[in-house]
Design a protein around this nucleic acid. Sequence first.
RNA 1: GCCGACAUAGCUCAGUGGUAGAGCAACGGUUUUGUAAACCGUCGGUCCUCGGUUCGAAUCCGAGUGUCGGCUCCA
Length: 637
Amino acid sequence: MTDLERLRHSCAHVLATAILKIWPEAQFAAGPPVENGFYYDVELPHRISPEDFPRIEEEMKREVKANHVFERVEVSRDGAIALAERGELAALGPRGETSKFKLDIVRNIPDGEVITLYRNGEFTDLCAGPHVLRTGNIGAFKLTHVASAYYKGDENNPQLQRIYGTAFKNKTEMQAYFDMLEEAKKRDHRKLGRELELFCFDDDVGPGLPLWLPRGTVLIEELEKLAKETEFAAGYDRVRTPHLARESMYLLSGHLPYYAESMFPPMSLVAEKAEAQRPVHRADLFANLLDKPLTSASLDEILCKAAEMRESEGLATERYYLKAMNCPHHHKLFGAVQRSYRDLPLRLAEYGTCYRYEQSGELFGLMRVRSMQMNDAHIYCTEEQFEEEFRAVNEMYLKYFSIFGIDRYQMRFSTHDPAKLGQKFVNQPELWLKTEDMVRGVLQRSGIHYVEVPNEAAFYGPKIDVQVWSAIGREFTIATNQVDFAVPQKFGLVYKDRDNTEKTPLCIHRAPLGTHERFIGFLIEHYAGNFPLWLAPDQVRIITIGAEEALGNYAKEILAELRRKGVRVELDLSSDPMKAKIAAAEKIKVHTMLVIGNRDLESGAVSLRVHGKGNLGARPKAEAIEEILAAIQERRS
RNA sequence: GCCGACAUAGCUCAGUGGUAGAGCAACGGUUUUGUAAACCGUCGGUCCUCGGUUCGAAUCCGAGUGUCGGCUCCA
């Protein structure tokens, strides 16, 4: 535990002390330090709201001022249980009620472990420590928010109130933290997305279904261009597949019924000619049955009637699902053509659109959505080819990260848990060990730093997830690279090997750029909206000083030349003062401004201004254009 | 999905039971400029939706929807 964590954990005890002074009946569960502070979970009939914070903080201040010693006491298990039963743990003294959560925690402490209590003033808590010496060592603290959490994170357990706070050695450091938070807020992709007109959401379209405005679409298309170039060079073939598929495919793939919950509910079609007619006919049919115009019927009435109708006529239904992943479609493409070992490795790539019914409370801007476009590809290869393919995929990741200047990331290698074979993981123990060894080997030989996490693999094989941190401090999986040794077999995918036998290929699922939604959400925060020239929705804006015809013509010449060369360029010929035009361009983070006045017109120059860098001075027109084209071409950061 | 908070003009926000407000943006005009905002005017509202309380609701109550903070989940 770091010094800061120790201090924050101690502050959690002070928080509990204060809460008990106000609400003596409070029952406490766990109160650990977390990334930016600490929390304590409490069960209390009173709903604590931020309005209660000043009062609680007042009590906390008193406790800090009293400068109580944090006293460590070792107790026997029976001793701790007796104290919990008398309600003396996480308490100011004996109480009528058992310290029920603490009792549960004591009972779950493994045999042989030393059980310790910590006391500060009147407050005693079951706690492994360590703590600061005295409450007075807590220099600065503040309660930040309140949320709810299930006891032990299990949704079958009672919901507790989780009071979050933060603490620092002194006020200066705490202020710096809050200032940093303010800065982070300005980078929030949801805020910038609106300000820069990149994307939006609409209630009539639906929650978690982003709409891309023209500027955001530029980002998408630039990323796709990058991916297509990179994948073409790496020997990928592009494919395209529909957004939905019949139920039977997801039964085959094994996604149903296990993943049905995270898929949109199916569309049911009646497999009967009369029913498959154009919607208008269906509408008339329903209207007749309903005895009123369709428009005045509620959706429930219509659905109910439709179901009744199907039932009464005994019509068979078939169901279609929106795809939640592209792999089954790609597997079908592998199987569509006879494959020889000479065709392998076969790399099928698609920016496929997927739909996942994420729980409503999980939606978060672009980072967690219900419709997404994935930088997907499936590589079908032999076991011998696996290492080389897997290594090449990892290198592609690193190439992308260097283009975007992403240096804070972590590769997470997720493996299976042998205890869950046949449940969470396909029951092929030897293939698990073999593929995990292969992946581990590639990572080690490539010198890639990674952490290994058991029990987090996909159901069909081990995987590597790349974690990044957004400006808001949330952790996200931005990219994924997975081994699949199970599903190709289910699909009966085979290739004819050299020895004239049929073999099942291994499959690598990979998405180095993740989904457009999450990746762009991340990039917005990463760049704080200040995209490099090649990505910037507004690459160049020509700003005239004055509006004489000759100057306007000169500006139009430059505009036309840049347009011809594929640059996203606009011309601001309005009568606003030059300073106002610059301000308007800066506000939407136009990357490069070409400011031209009569002086420039006379000398055939432009004056260059770059967002965030200010005025770079005048230079010959041709030179400025050359410079702009080169920066775009090289995807300079 | 669960707990809680929030929802007022395109954006940021004020308005706590009695005529719906500001700044910015947009639009119209005047102004003709040397590196982040020239002046004047105009437009703009289902105060999220539905229901209730009340002589009267943006304001109080209930339900729904959405967003946010967490939890759970995350192929």
